[in-house]
Amino acid sequence: MPSDHPPEPVVPRPAATVILVRDAPEPAPGRSPLQVFLQRRVAGMAFAGGMTVFPGGAVDPTDLPDPAAWSGPDPRWFSERFGCDPELAGSLVCAAVRETFEECGVLLAGPGHADVTLLGAGRADLVAHRRTLGQLLAETGLLLRAELLQPWARWITPPVSPRRYDTAFLVAVVPEGQSADAHTTEAVEATWWHPDEALREWERGGMQLMAPTYRTLEQIAEHPTSASLFAAAPDRTIRAIIPQARRDGGDIVLEVGEQPEVRMPAARMPIAEGGPL
């Protein structure tokens, strides 16, 4: 006999995503140099298939901070920014570093540069779960450089979705001497975009964006350089955002707390198993 009570919302899984930015090597005259790295996910993926996203993913049980291999603000500082406990905050930072290395080859660790061949093998081992980030850092003598990350936002998938994430968004500038690539099986393409051009591509229908990505691109497009964006992050007030959706004619309108609402055509609003993302 069917229950008269709706099912309890799924508990969101902790996740981290990195707004990876750089200044374009040769920006066009009059063009702001800020660029952001975006990936278009494989269409068949269970979550956000076909969407264009920032690098990132769910926290893994192995994402455990090691004080001996940590440089920069400690997990407690990140916990105060994200409004979570220090243990989770440390895991979020570890997940951000691991996912960025796995998905685009940028390692937010130092000092200096470890052997390229060793790091290449380490990246493959991380993807295949043969090695943890902590083991890789220990074997290469590198420290996780938390100072290369700045908290930006926190978004939680709405309760109507059976697949939910509580995602910490962090900003990072590609370290000198490194470059991002598209060598990941999770994306069919990945490249650098000027934020305003990515938004125009979405408006033309050439790109699919979830509401958190759309809103973040709007926000970072206000900054001309990667340095100015990174410097602005500490001044942000971060509150967990759980979008609430309503229909308005042919549009889906997402109310996002104290921020301006996000309006998208219903035909292009991502739907995930019963609810807008």
Rank of each mutant, 00 (worst) to 15 (best):
P276H: 00
S179Q: 13
H194I: 03
H194N: 14
P162K: 05
Q219Y: 01
A172M: 08
P276R: 01
T225S: 06
V160A: 11
R164L: 14
G206W: 01
L199E: 02
R204P: 00
A190M: 07
L170A: 03
T185S: 11
Q208N: 11
A187G: 08
P260W: 06
L277P: 01
M207H: 02
A267L: 13
A221G: 15
L170M: 10
A153L: 05
A172I: 10
R154D: 01
E203W: 12
D196Q: 15
Q219C: 04
L148F: 07
V173M: 08
T237D: 10
A231L: 06
Q219S: 08
Q150K: 07
A227K: 02
E186V: 04
L170D: 00
E255T: 15
L229M: 06
A233L: 10
Q208S: 11
A198G: 08
V256G: 08
P212V: 05
L148C: 07
A240K: 12
W152E: 10
T184L: 07
T185M: 06
A267P: 02
R200S: 11
P159I: 14
T184A: 07
T167H: 00
V173K: 10
V160G: 06
V173G: 00
A267V: 13
V253H: 03
P265C: 01
L254E: 04
T216I: 07
G250D: 15
Q208W: 06
D181L: 04
L199T: 08
R164M: 14
D235T: 11
R215L: 02
G249H: 06
M269F: 06
S161K: 02
A233Q: 14
P159L: 11
E261N: 12
E273M: 14
E201N: 09
I220Y: 08
P224Y: 00
V174M: 04
T237K: 13
T237H: 12
E222K: 15
D235Q: 14
P151I: 03
S226L: 02
R154L: 04
L229Q: 07
E255M: 12
S228N: 14
S226K: 07
P151H: 07
A245S: 12
P158T: 10
L148Q: 04
P276L: 00
P270H: 02
A187M: 10
A233Y: 13
W193M: 15
P243G: 01
L170S: 02
G274E: 09
F230A: 07
A245R: 03
F169N: 05
M269P: 12
E218G: 13
Q219L: 11
A187K: 02
P234M: 06
A266C: 05
R236Q: 13
S161H: 05
S228K: 15
T216C: 10
L149M: 11
A272T: 12
L170R: 01
R164F: 09
L148H: 03
R246W: 05
G177W: 09
R239F: 02
P212E: 03
Q219A: 11
D251P: 06
R164Q: 14
S226I: 04
